[in-house]
Design a binder for these strands. Structure first.
Length: 262
DNA sequence: ATGACTGGCGCGGCCAGA
């Protein structure tokens, strides 16, 4: 079973990219973040025609928005409101062999100080809430996948320069510490690092501001696919589709694929 | 020199991304 996560940065603008990744990589399930559309304007037709007939979405006007597109049926769809807001950042579905959570953790603004930056405070609260929620509602031996744009690059080699990014939102100590707590909540496996050694650079996002993203290669690994321990023996492969950063009018994030032997 | 960008909204720039 092939899962794919991608911050698409407007699903309506980049519906052709979604169709292309379906055709070229044949994922069974696609999880999108930053769809940026109310549900009534979601491009259902194109997606269903491509064979993804099972769709669970939660979108809003202008910002955020998450979607799960599947060739396989699922049940028990959920929409979760986080930190007292209805801002379309967490949906979930149940497949026969595991439960899937699609997350869009807040970006957090510029200033890494929760006292003066509400967006940063919101981000830290969001991760804390997820940690408590996972602990309260699940056990470590449940079969779960949590994936999406976590907006945090946890490791030294998940950013192009650990030293230069220590005070930049996405790689600050409070974020990294909180994400580690969230990971510990259910003993989650970070599947990218299951397949790629810790000391090897690994990115899923490159800023639009770099003229030549490939040449400067100032990336960050912000997009993640986590699984709980019962799925560990089923992990088959992992791939970051970096070439999608070169597609016409690309998203600043690229798709991440993970295959399970199920 | 994270600089030199991009999308939504809506028709002028602002907010947000990270």
């Amino acid at each position: 079973m092939r899962l794919l996560t991608w911050n698409i940065n407007s699903v309506r603008l980049r519906i052709n990219h979604v169709l292309r990744v379906m055709k070229e990589h044949s994922p069974d399930v696609i999880c999108l973040q930053e769809t940026k559309t109310p549900d009534e304007h979601f491009p259902f037709e194109d997606i269903k025609n491509a064979g993804y007939k099972h769709i669970h979405i939660h979108g809003m006007k202008g910002y955020n928005g998450v979607a799960i597109l599947s060739r396989l049926p699922f049940s028990a769809t959920d929409i979760h409101h986080r930190v007292g807001r209805e801002d379309c950042r967490h949906i979930a579905v149940k497949f026969p062999k595991f439960e899937l959570h699609n997350l869009y953790i807040p970006a957090g603004g510029d200033e890494p100080d929760p006292k003066i930056n509400d967006k940063y405070a919101h981000k830290l609260d969001f991760v804390d809430e997820m940690t408590g929620w996972f602990k309260k509602n699940y056990a470590a031996n449940d079969r779960l996948v949590a994936l999406g744009d976590f907006n945090i690059a946890p490791g030294e080699h998940d950013v192009w320069s650990h030293k230069q990014l220590l005070n930049v939102v996405s790689h600050t100590e409070p974020e990294v510490t909180r994400l580690a707590k969230m990971q510990k909540s259910l003993d989650w496996i970070d599947t990218a690092r299951h397949f790629v050694p810790e000391d090897q650079k690994c990115y899923t996002w490159w800023s639009y501001r770099n003229h030549d993203w490939k040449k400067s290669n100032r990336g960050r690994r912000l997009d993640h696919i986590w699984v709980t321990q019962p799925l560990k023996k089923h992990l088959k492969s992992h791939e970051i589709i970096a070439k999608a950063r070169d597609w016409e009018k690309p998203s600043d994030h690229v798709p991440v694929i993970m295959d399970l032997n199920l």
